[in-house]
Amino acid sequence: MSEPLTVTRIAHSCHLIQIGEKTILTDPWFSEKMFYHPGEPVALRPETLPHLDAVVISHEHYDHCDLRAFRRYRDHDVPMVVAGPVVAKARKAGFTDVTPLEPWQTAKIGDITVHAAPGLHGVYEVTYVIQAGGRSVYFAGDTLLTPELLTLGKRHGTFDLALLPVNGLTIRMAGNKQVVMNADDAAELAAALRPRLVVPQHYAFTGGAVGDRLILRSDKDPGLFVKAVERLAPAVAVRVIDTGSPLVVAP
């Protein structure tokens, strides 16, 4: 029998995933600075987080790896599974239990299994399949769509939940280079994975008035993803969740 699964959006790609009594935090981001604004309320602060059994970090960008703020979390021995370039940053921030994973490698943290999958972004990135208590969650950080990701269902079976980036972020100063999945890309991945539920992430982010006008371009409406799923993956349930609102995922 599978255990209860709940996801709580903190902001951006930062979530609490609770499977039974186990709690996993994804891509911590709790603060802001010039050109990096969540664009939505941040639901929790590091010092108010519940006990964490694991943390996964997809890559080293500040809005996914806010270790300066996360140092305020009370337990610096919390197990962390990270992309290779994050290791030194995590240890410098005082975290002691840090495991790097390459794509297709696996780590066990008690009853939690974390499989790394490929990612493609402006810097080195991995994405994660998180399994525990008979449940399976795919967390996609802010990757682009790659052919390897379309095979995850065959590799790992049925997903209860997929958390997919959808804002199609492009860098104006790099010739409008796209570095994150857009709504249609994410819906195509949802169609391939066929999770019981898909939830969009990484859409409210803003570089501020100057950053959005001169540096970045992105789609900030998750409704675009909802419409894309209805068109490209009509058998997949989709939900947009507000920050701080726990969502129970049915078995």
Score class of each variant (00 low, 15 high):
Asp185Glu: 05
Gly175Met: 03
His156Gly: 04
Arg155Glu: 12
Val56Asp: 09
Thr146Phe: 07
Tyr62Val: 10
Gly175Thr: 02
Phe205Thr: 05
Ala69Gly: 09
Phe225Gly: 03
Arg196Ile: 00
Asp63Thr: 03
Val198Glu: 03
Ala183Leu: 04
His12Cys: 01
Glu125Thr: 08
Gly207Val: 01
Glu125Cys: 05
Thr113Ala: 12
Val240Pro: 01
Glu230Val: 00
Met80Glu: 03
Ser31Tyr: 00
Gly133His: 02
Val86Asn: 12
Glu21Met: 00
Thr23Met: 05
Gly211Ala: 06
Phe159Thr: 02
Ala174Gly: 07
Glu125His: 11
Leu144Gln: 14
Arg172Ile: 07
Tyr138Gly: 06
Glu47Gln: 12
Ala90Gly: 07
Gly157His: 10
Leu152Pro: 08
Lys154Gln: 12
Ala174Leu: 11
Tyr73Ala: 06
Phe30Arg: 03
Met1Ile: 08
Pro50Phe: 11
Ala140Leu: 06
Val198Ala: 04
Ala228Arg: 14
Ala228Lys: 14
Pro165Glu: 06
Gly223His: 10
Leu164Glu: 04
Arg196Trp: 03
Val249Met: 03
Lys89Phe: 09
Pro41Tyr: 01
Val137His: 05
Thr243Leu: 10
Asp27Asn: 15
Ala183Val: 06
Thr158Ile: 13
Leu193His: 07
Ala204Asp: 09
Met173Trp: 10
Lys92Val: 12
Ile215Ser: 02
Ser58Glu: 04
Val82Ile: 11
Ala233Val: 00
Ile171Met: 15
Gly153Thr: 03
Cys65His: 14
Ala237Met: 10
Ala140Met: 01
Gly141Gln: 02
Leu44Thr: 00
Val56Lys: 01
His76Leu: 10
His59Asn: 15
Pro4Trp: 09
Met173Ser: 11
Asp53His: 08
His59Arg: 15
Leu44Arg: 05
Gly84Leu: 15
Gly119Val: 03
Thr106Arg: 15
Asp53Cys: 12
Val42Arg: 07
Asp63Asn: 13
Thr106Asp: 09
Val87Gln: 14
Val240Gln: 07
Gly39Leu: 04
Gln105Thr: 15
Ala237Leu: 14
Leu120Pro: 00
